[in-house]
Write a protein that binds this DNA or RNA. Sequence first.
DNA 1: CTGAAAGCGCTTACAG
DNA 2: CTGAAAGCGCTTACAG
Lengths: 355, 355
Amino acid sequence: MAADQAPVAGSPIGEHPIRRRLTINDIARLADVSKKTVSRVINESPLVNEATRQKVAAIIAENGYIPDPQARGLAFRRSFLIAFFYDNPSAQYVVNAQQGILEALRGSSLELVVRPVNRQAPTFVDEMRDVVTRQKFAGVVLFPSVSEDERLVALLRELDCPYVRVASVLLDRPEAMIVSHDAVGAAAAARHLAAAGHTRIGHICGPNTFRSSHVRREGFEAGLVECGLALDPTLVAEGAYTFESGVVCGERLLALEPRPTAIFTGNDEMALGVYQAARERGLEIPRDLSVVGFDDSPIASRVWPLLTSVALPIVEMGRIAASRLRGVEDPADPLNGPAVTPMLVARNSVGPPSS
Amino acid sequence: MAADQAPVAGSPIGEHPIRRRLTINDIARLADVSKKTVSRVINESPLVNEATRQKVAAIIAENGYIPDPQARGLAFRRSFLIAFFYDNPSAQYVVNAQQGILEALRGSSLELVVRPVNRQAPTFVDEMRDVVTRQKFAGVVLFPSVSEDERLVALLRELDCPYVRVASVLLDRPEAMIVSHDAVGAAAAARHLAAAGHTRIGHICGPNTFRSSHVRREGFEAGLVECGLALDPTLVAEGAYTFESGVVCGERLLALEPRPTAIFTGNDEMALGVYQAARERGLEIPRDLSVVGFDDSPIASRVWPLLTSVALPIVEMGRIAASRLRGVEDPADPLNGPAVTPMLVARNSVGPPSS
DNA sequence: CTGAAAGCGCTTACAG
DNA sequence: CTGAAAGCGCTTACAG
C-alpha cells in the first residue's frame, strides 16, 4: 500500500511465494517466438535456427522450465512412463533389475512404473491389455519368467508398445532381446566341478515351466560332456527354485548309494536347501559334498561356507534394456559387441571329492 | 464390396482390427447425455440421477471404456501416480514395501512410480523439487531413512503433495505417519535374552544418522532395565547396518574379557557378521554365544543356526500408507485401532549362557 | 440434476 | 526455418 514502486507483474510483493508454474506460453513470450518453436527446442528438432535454439534454451534453463509430461503425453498419444513387469520370486533379482533400469533412465524425463504380475491368473492378459492401453507406456521391460510369455508379447505388438525382453535364450528379434546365456554359466559350473575331480555329480533343476530350468540343465550337461563326463539322469531332481524344494531334492540325492560328491543347483535358494539337507545327514561342505549355486545372490556370501555360484549381470541387463527403449547406446549392449555373459564366482563350497 | 450390409460405423469390415480407443465423447453419444455427465459418473459425483448413472455406467462397462489418465491428470492438475521414494539398502525391505503399496493400489486407477534417492547428494532437494513439481503425484510414500528427511517433507508440504511417512517414531501429525515402534521390538529382544539367562549382553547398533539406530538401542536398553539388567556402554558398538561392519564390531565385542554371552544387533545383516566373527574365534552359536537380529529378512531362515530376529510388518505398513493416500480404510491402520507392532521370531540362535 | 463453453499445456498437420 | 489454428481427452467454472 505504501510501497514506492508498483510490484513487478508476476511476482507481486507480499503474495504467497509459490508462483504459478511456467508453461510453454510463458517461455514463448519471454523468448519472443511462437510456442511451436519452443516445442521444437524441447523436442530437439533440427528444424530450428541455431541462434534461436540457443536463445530459447537459455530462457528455459534460466527459468527452470520443465514441460508438463501429462500435457506432452496427451498430445503425443504416448506417456513418458517406462513399465517394469515382473514375476520373479527373488527380491534381489527384482531390485537389481529395477536398479539397472533406473540407472539408464536417470537424466531422462521418463519415470519407472512397476507392476508385479501373475501369469497364472485367468485375467492376466485382460489386465495387461487394460494397463498398456490406458498408460500408453513409452516402453516395457520384461524379465523372466514373464518375458517368456508370448501372449503378453503379442499383445504389446498389437498395441504398438515398444518392449525389450530379457531371457535365457533368443525368443525374439535381437533388438527386442537381451539373452542372458544361462547355458554358458551352467557349463562353467560343470567345468569347475570337473576340474575339482568330481565325476558323480548331481543336479537340481528349476521347475519345467521356466525356460531357464531347461537352459541351465542343458548347459550344465554340455559342460560335463566337454570334460568327458555325462549327466546321469538318476542324479537329476526337479525342484521349484525354492529353499524347501532344495531341501527335499537334496535329501533325495544324498540318500542315493553311492551318493553324488557334488551338486549343482539351478539357483542359490535351492543350494541353501542342499546345505540344510547335508547338515541333517551330518555331511560337511565342502569336505563331504561340493555345491554350486546360480544367481550369486547376496545370501551366497553370507552363509557358511561361502557359496560358489554363477553370477548373472542383472543390473547391467536392466540398464541395457532401458537404454534401448530410450534409444540411447549402452557400451555394454550386446548389439554393439560381445554378449552379456554370466560369470562363475568361486568361493568355499567346492573341494575335491571325498570318496 | 459385395457385402449385403453396409459395415457398421466404427468397425468397418476388412479394416485393421485395432479400433480407435473410445473417448468420453463416444460414451456421451452412446448414452445420449453430455460428456460432463459421463465425467460425473467416472468421478462418482453424487450430483447425478441414479437412473442416468446406471445407464452411463452400463455403457462404460459394455464398451470397456477406460478414461485416459493423462487427460484426466492434465485437467485435474494432478497425476494418477503414487511415488515411492526409497534409500534403504535392503532389497527385501524395498520389495516388501513396494508389495504392500501395490496391494493397496490394486483395482484403483493409480500406478506406482519408484525412485531410489540419495539424501547425501548435494542436488537431492532440487531433484526432488523437479520431479514432484513435474509429476504432480497423487501421493508419495516415504520409508526410512528418507522418511526422516525434514527438507523433503517441507518441500512436499510447500508443493501441496500428499504424503505418508513410515518411521520408528512419531515425527509428524498422526494421519501422515505410520510408526513402526522399533523400540517395542528391541525391548522384546532384550526380554528374550534375559529370559534365557543372559546378563552380559552386547549390542551392535546402526549408524548414528539413522533414527532407527537410536530407537532400537533405547528400546533394547529399556527392555533390559525392565528385567533388572543394564546396558553396559562398553558392550555397545556402532555399526553401519552392513555385513562387514557386523564382522568388525562382532570381533571387537568378542575380544573383550569377559566376553558377552549374547549380542543383539540392529539388523540381520550385522547379525550375520557376528556369526562370521564367532566362527573365526571358534565360538559356536548358540552354545557359546546367543544372537538376535532385527528385520527377519528371508536370510534369517536360510542360515545356520536359524537366526532369531525381530520382524517388522513392512508389507502391511506399505499397504496402510497407500490406502491412506487413496482415502480408503485399511482394517490394520493404527488410526482405527491398535498400533502396528514388531514381533520377535524365535529360532535357533539363542540358548542359555555358557559361562 | 444436467449441459455448453472454456481451458489444462502441450503437439500435429498445414501453410508459408 | 517459423507460426496460427486445431486438437489430444478430460475437468472446472458457470449457468440453468
